[in-house]
Design a protein around this nucleic acid. Structure first.
Length: 647
RNA sequence: GCCGGCUUAGCUCAGCUGGUAGAGCACCUGAUUUGUAAUCAGGGGGUCGGGGGUUCGAAUCCCUCAGCCGGCACCA
């Protein structure tokens, strides 16, 4: 006998080996009918599975949120059957559920194109309409390999081989078609429903390894109800509207062109935004005890040989040509650290100088693979808010904590609600003694725990020179961005010959901490454009307000208002064009100008303005002086505002 | 870098199976002086991404290079 506990707390005994379906039927035929799977002790299982042990049992209806991953997984099987029905000889490989949908990787000489989608979707609907039950079989390893080999499914043979010896080989059938699969599945193909859509084709390496053959991946989305599918598609459209590449063009922030792939042409408005961010970081880190330096763009390649970068990253660095009159070759810097070590080494340093925290808005160049380039998010030339702290071993914990606090405080100012920290500890291949690693990891970990933030362990993912923290932001539409980093470096200072004199007159190699907060300013600007959907807070908005006239009678007054605003350092333009106010309101709203100061005859006579805020229909009338004071107040950066409040 | 797709006016896009390029918006000019999301009329603008080939003839077909887009791989 097995004892099953039901969600209402009832507990009943059943013969051992009874199936979930039989249990459901025993309770009521209608329950059995609407149930697509069960959960035993919270783990999803086939409804046809035999129950061998006492368990908490729950019946999962198709509408249950937990059924969604089954719908998607079943849909993946249906898609694979459809593809093989349409193109015999296509090999199937793997088809997992992912966020918002699923994919399936196929191997076929002729790749698929989106034009094939309608046919595949049609065939899928046929298979779903047939409503064949999913049935599970356990095969022997040899039998599975023989069957797949006979069918020419060589990738499946590899998959069978990859299954650990202690696990059984499970095959799921849906009518004639079957697939190697871990399961579980719903009761039949009909349960997939029709809220699915094929989204895109993509190449993907077999087993994620670029040395392997490339497969064709078909991405699809699937939902329990058509309304959910529609909502998802709408959400994608919304995300597209806030794409920083699109907003960058629409808001006249920047552009790219063929002659400089991966390098940004910043327009005046975009550069204003960029500089607002740079100034902000400069204020924050100066307040935290950093000094700012600037190191050369080009340095002798020998230095990069010494640092080890040449060997590891040669293919990703820009190098100058060797010239007749100059035998040396120069490297366009891909990072700032070697330069900062040179600054540290210049002049003898004492333990009294430590910690020495050196920051630079260094522009670095990296020859990123062409396929990796992506707007501002992945470029070949970018500006890091980089810093290196030269410290003693004893100072590791304190300085890491200070960096951690600074980074988290900065993200708060931009309204990122969720920050997840990844802790990467010692990798297999590393330098330095275990004692030093122990100390470095413990110090980093104490900083991490002091932050009180959620974190995850990235086992063995640290740099070869030391452990690191990586800060991942989640933006307004739920996407993750890795930005900040704190790295303990036990290697480079020694390698480049840096030392300080300790209190016993001994030469000691300092520990170096690498720190970035935004990471790449280019990328962070892109993230912010999407995070705010172009609706920047006033302190960042490239154009804060437009003074718009209703008739030309107000032109002189508008010019006066503009000049007064500019004297206050506000970023304001005047729109004196011979256009209707409706037209101007529309145009500046679309351009996402935060504030419109509308002036007509009435305002000119009364020395007032009518304020209209972006996203609001309402108007607010006040005197020009009051309006400018308000604007100036709202334009103050959050850190400066805090200082003013504290004073 | 790999797989697939795309590249036509400043932007968004149309141009069927080859016959020599079009729309809307933007821009310019004129009229209109306007009260909170598009006033009307007129006008200019393209060696159809670069190079090569097939053809009597190429935006259209083929090859090649580049860039971009979607993934994969990579990301000090």
């Amino acid at each position: 006998m097995v004892a099953l506990t039901f969600p209402d707390g009832a507990r009943r005994d059943y013969p051992q080996g009874i199936t979930g379906l039989e249990v459901a039927k025993g309770i009521s035929p209608s329950l059995a009918k609407r149930t697509v799977a069960m959960a035993l002790d919270g783990v999803l299982a086939d409804l046809a599975d035999r129950i061998e042990r006492d368990a908490r049992i729950e019946f999962v209806a198709r509408e249950d949120p937990r059924a969604l991953e089954l719908i998607r997984h079943d849909a993946a099987h249906v898609m694979a059957e459809a593809v093989q029905a349409l193109w015999p000889g296509t090999q199937v490989t793997i088809g997992p559920v992912i966020e918002n949908g699923f994919y399936y990787d196929f191997f076929r000489n002729e790749p698929f194109t989106p034009e094939d989608f309608p046919a595949i979707e049609k065939k899928m609907r046929e298979i779903i309409a047939r409503d064949r039950p999913f049935t599970k079989e356990a095969w022997s390893r040899e039998e599975a390999k023989r069957v797949f080999r006979d069918r020419g499914e060589l990738f499946k043979v590899e998959l069978v081989d990859a299954i650990p010896e202690d696990q059984e080989i499970k095959i799921y059938r849906q009518g004639e078609w079957f697939d190697l699969c871990r399961g579980p599945h719903m009761t039949s193909t009909g349960k997939v429903g029709d809220a699915f859509k094929l989204m895109k084709v993509a190449g993907a390496y077999w087993r994620g390894d670029s040395r392997n053959p490339m497969l064709t991946r078909i991405y699809a989305t699937a939902w329990a109800k058509p309304a959910e599918l529609d909502a998802y598609l709408k959400q994608l459209e919304e995300a597209e509207k806030r794409d920083h590449r699109r907003l960058g063009r629409e808001m006249d922030l920047f552009h790219f062109q063929e002659e400089a792939p991966g390098s940004v042409f910043w327009h005046a408005k975009g550069w204003t935004l960029f500089q607002a961010l740079e100034s902000y970081i400069r204020r924050r880190q100066t307040a935290a005890g950093y000094v700012e330096v600037n190191s050369p763009q080009l340095m002798d390649s020998e230095l990069w040989v010494t640092s080890g970068h040449m060997e590891k990253y040669h293919d990703m660095m820009f190098l100058t040509e060797q010239r007749e009159e100059e035998e040396r070759r120069y490297v366009v810097k891909p990072m700032n650290c070697p330069g900062h070590v040179q600054i540290f080494k210049n002049g003898l340093k004492s333990y009294r100088d430590l910690p020495l925290k050196v920051a630079e808005f260094g522009k670095v160049h990296r020859f990123e693979p062409s396929g990796a380039l992506h707007g501002l998010m992945r470029v070949r030339a970018f500006t890091q808010d980089d810093a290196h702290a030269f410290i003693t071993e004893e100072q590791i914990a304190r300085e890491c904590l200070a960096m951690n606090d600074l980074i988290l405080s900065i993200y708060e100012d931009f309204g990122f609600p969720d920050v997840v920290i990844k802790f990467s500890d010692r990798p297999e291949k590393r330098i330095g003694s275990d004692e030093v690693w122990d100390k470095a990891e413990a110090a980093l970990m104490s900083a991490l725990q002091a932050s009180g933030r959620p974190w995850t362990l990235n086992k063995g993912e640290g740099a070869f020179y030391g452990p690191k923290l990586e800060y991942v932001l989640r933006d307004a539409i739920g996407r993750d961005w890795q930005c900040g980093t704190v790295q303990v470096d036990l290697n480079l200072p020694g390698r480049l010959g840096a030392f300080y004199i300790d209190e016993h007159s001994n030469k000691v190699t300092p520990v170096m901490l690498h720190r970035a907060m935004f990471g790449s300013l280019e990328r962070f600007t892109g993230i912010l454009i999407e995070h705010y959907a172009g609706h920047f807070p006033l302190w960042l908005a490239p154009l804060q307000a437009v003074v718009a006239t209703i008739t030309s009678d107000a032109d002189d007054y508008a010019r006066e208002a503009l000049a007064a605003a500019q004297r206050l350092g506000l970023r304001v333009e005047a729109d004196l064009r011979n256009e209707k106010i409706n037209y101007k309101v529309r145009e500046h709203s679309l351009a996402k100008v935060p504030l419109l100061l509308v002036v007509g005859k009435k305002e000119a006579a009364e020395r007032t303005v009518s304020i209209r805020r972006l996203g609001s229909q309402q108007q607010q009338s006040m005197t020009l002086d009051a309006a400018l004071a308000l604007l100036a107040g709202e334009s103050v950066a959050p850190d400066v505002k805090r200082l003013a409040q504290a004073a």
